[in-house]
């Protein structure tokens, strides 16, 4: 499955508020379910998420169980300069994924 869908308006005017939306393919296994043999299925969720805009922190979040599989995240930032938005998240297996979106900002 495609791992991530990111939606950001890529051409912006300075001062404009814009939304960053992500859908991440992830099982978000809560650690509370059992398989058909009665064994607990190990927890595997995205536990950290952060987003920077030209190295400035926009959002940092700690995630907990009880978030559905394939989570949807949305938040806002304000356009300042042309540059990159970098989103990074880590799951319980220690897998780190980074996605980058370039935006162009005009005066």
């Amino acid at each position: 499955m495609a791992r991530t869908l990111i939606n950001v308006k890529k051409t912006l005017t300075r001062g404009e508020a814009f939304e960053i939306r992500l859908l991440i393919a992830h099982p978000m296994e809560s650690g509370q379910r059992r398989d058909s043999n009665g064994q607990v299925i190990a927890r595997d969720i995205i536990n950290r998420f952060s987003c920077t805009y030209n190295d400035m922190l926009v959002l940092e979040a700690t995630l907990f169980p009880a978030i559905s599989a394939n989570p949807y995240l949305s938040f806002w930032a304000v356009a300042t300069e042309t540059g990159s938005i970098v989103m990074t998240w880590t799951d319980d297996h220690g897998t780190v994924q980074t996605e980058r979106v370039e935006v162009t900002v005009s005066a």
Partner: peptide, 15 residues
Amino acid sequence: DTANPAFLWVEQGKV
């Protein structure tokens, strides 16, 4: 479409 998780599969389908 940006909130519909089915689009993760749509993207995979394109690939």
